[in-house]
């Protein structure tokens, strides 16, 4: 059986007249669909936070990151760290869309023997930059990478994607202080600010606000945008490269479960959940898949 859907969204088959934003939106849609399908096949996984960061990941992999699938070990490549490691299904999906791994293989998410573990592992997948899954550590690893690349006089940049609930880990603020102290302008952190965490809204668990003011007080260059607005994402990521002497932070306001109406803003879909076939079909339909495509994803 040919998985045509996996080819249709690939960049090389996109019309050369399409703008970058159109390509990134297509990548984001594919990322959402693939993540849903992978979580359905796995029988568990975190859909809410994977859907909320799909546009951010698509903008990074589709436009911002200097990465080459054929040279995953190129010393001067940009580094991306998924600090919110539970969004692994979205990372695998976007990476497969841009040729870092096979989309079909990435559907083996969470299965014994599969390199696509429940949380990303650098030993299993060479293009994953570090192992994550324990919140708070990814941003510190990214700080270490940025310090090390600077020492090595590399022009590569480092990007880290954090969850909002993750900011409750004290280590994040240790890393924030350190990055500002060393003026790591080769570091850009992005917060997927979907306002929900495992049990409830951030506000109900442990308040994060005033969030932008906190990061500004830590002496980061802060931008606040709609994390589903691809044009804004592309523009802001580009601008973050010029933060001169300060690390940059993008607070991306997002909707948990974005694109699947029954999941949107419902905390229950944060946690590791099992998707029934009916739920998966409903989700893929909402994301624009026709019957044939749904059949391919869920077969």
């Amino acid at each position: 059986m040919g998985l045509n859907v996996f080819e249709a969204g690939r960049p090389e088959t996109t019309s050369p007249y399409d703008t970058l934003a159109v390509q990134v939106r297509a990548a984001a849609t594919f990322t959402r669909k693939h993540a849903i399908a992978a979580i359905y096949h796995a029988g568990s996984g975190h859909p809410g936070g994977a859907l909320s960061c799909a546009d951010i990941l698509a903008a990074l992999f589709g436009a911002e990151l200097n990465l080459w699938p054929d040279e995953p070990n190129e010393p001067d490549r940009d580094r991306f760290v998924l600090s919110k490691g539970h969004a692994a299904p979205a990372l695998y999906a976007v990476a497969s869309h841009f040729g870092f791994c096979s989309p079909r293989a990435a559907l083996s998410l969470r299965k014994l023997g599969s390199p696509f573990q429940g949380h990303p592992h650098v030993i299993d997948l060479p293009w994953v930059e570090t192992s994550t899954g324990s919140l708070g550590q990814g941003i510190s690893v990214a700080v270490g990478m940025a310090m090390g690349l600077r020492l090595k006089k590399s022009s590569a940049r480092v990007y880290a994607l954090l969850g909002d609930g993750e900011l409750q880990e004290g280590e994040v603020w240790e890393a924030a202080m350190c990055a500002a102290h060393y003026g790591l302008d080769n570091l850009c952190a992005i917060i997927d600010y979907n306002k929900l965490q495992s049990d409830a809204r951030n506000d109900a668990i442990m308040r994060l606000e005033p969030l932008a003011a906190k990061w500004r007080a830590f002496d980061w260059a802060v931008a606040e945008i709609d994390g589903h607005d691809v044009d804004a994402l592309l523009r802001t990521l580009r601008r973050a490269g010029g933060s001169q002497g300060r690390p940059s932070l993008i607070i991306a306001h997002t909707i948990k479960g974005k694109g699947v109406p029954y999941m949107e803003n419902v905390p229950t879909w944060h946690g590791s959940v099992k998707l029934t076939r009916a739920q998966a079909v409903e989700a893929l339909t909402a994301l624009g898949s026709a019957d044939a495509e749904i059949e391919e994803f869920l077969a």
């Binding site: 010393p75 580094r79 650098v122 930059e129 570090t130 708070g136 550590q137 510190s140 690893v141 990214a142 700080v143 270490g144 990478m145 940025a146 310090m147 090390g148 690349l149 020492l151 090595k152 590399s154 004290g170 280590e171 240790e174 890393a175 202080m177 350190c178 102290h181």
Partner: peptide
């Protein structure tokens, strides 16, 4: 130039060491 002060913040220091090793240094 090869000595990095992390302040009194061991968790960040330990994980950052992982990042430094990832780019080819021996922390």
């Amino acid at each position: 130039e090869r000595f990095f002060q992390f302040g009194i913040a061991e968790q960040n220091m330990m994980a950052a060491a992982g990042g430094m090793a990832a780019v080819g240094l021996v922390p």
